[in-house]
Amino acid sequence: MCLWHNALLRRLYDLAYPMQTCLDNSERTLMRPTNRENFSLAIYDLFEGVCHWRLWYMLGLNEIKHRYRRSSLGPFWLTLSVGVQVLVMGFIFGFLFEHKIERFIPFLCISLVLWTFLSTTIMDGSNSLVNASSLITQVKRPLSVHILQAVWRNIIILCHTIVIFVVVSLAFGMFPGATWLLAPFGFFIFLANIAWISLFVAILSARFRDVPLIVQNAFTILFWLTPVFYKPEQLGEGTMADLVLLNPLFHILEVVRAPLILQYPSTANWLIAGACAVFGWAITILLFSRARARIAYWV
């Protein structure tokens, strides 16, 4: 842990446990916290989780390594499966919608890659606390570690699947342009949103075991309701097109997708995606404040 981490954690710890002035390897008092303490403890847990990056970095990497240890292609199976999916869907939808294939396939490819990342991270996230129950009940670690681990594991997978997009766009003559410079900012907002949704559903899932199933079903439907493999313009001018624009997932997706297919995200995209991240985190932190101390009892 670097120094500024330590200084920051110490400050947060002071807020969380006003009676003490030391970190966890020193004196600790546990009793039923007040609401304010619960809030600081939740923030403390989140920061401590980030500072324990070695833990989730390693656990996430190990999981991928062991999952593919005995297969010949290893994680490139993921690349292959996305590749096949894109080709098949690309030709069928390209034919149905009478698109220009050379524009449509890169668009479809990046959409599927990002959507798969978004939906699997949130689904993994919803199970992350419940699946880690044995760890949670055996050693005291920040709970946010488990969500970060799920997000990180899916980022590793994303690094494998994004290869397909690069190959496909080059193959169809779509070379990187200036808009790509916006992609990192878009990705940051995209990731911030995914992280809070994951934490939010993870907490709910620990208490209510139906939540992972609800999330799973919701994403099957959302795949069709969100402009993933079509564009909102294609819905025409009617109410349908307006309704689709109300879906925040579209804007969250668009801020990273548009730059990669050489378009500029609209101001509305940026604002709505950013606002979702801010409000989402606010609500999630409030929920986490209330639930954090009880999660070990629930899992």
């Binding site: 966890d24 390897n25 020193s26 004196e27 600790r28 008092t29 546990l30 009793m31 039923r32 916290p33 656990l59 190990n62 999981e63 062991h66 999952r67 240890r69 880690a132 044995s134 760890l135 949670i136 009940t137 055996q138 050693v139 005291k140 101390a293 070990a296 009892y297």
Partner: peptide, 27 residues
Amino acid sequence: GIYEPTNGSLVTRGKIMPLFNITEGMA
């Protein structure tokens, strides 16, 4: 420190090392 007290208080001082089921979280 895993189960936080429902009532009452607990003060601990020093670094705590638990011996727990070692295979947890491992493939």
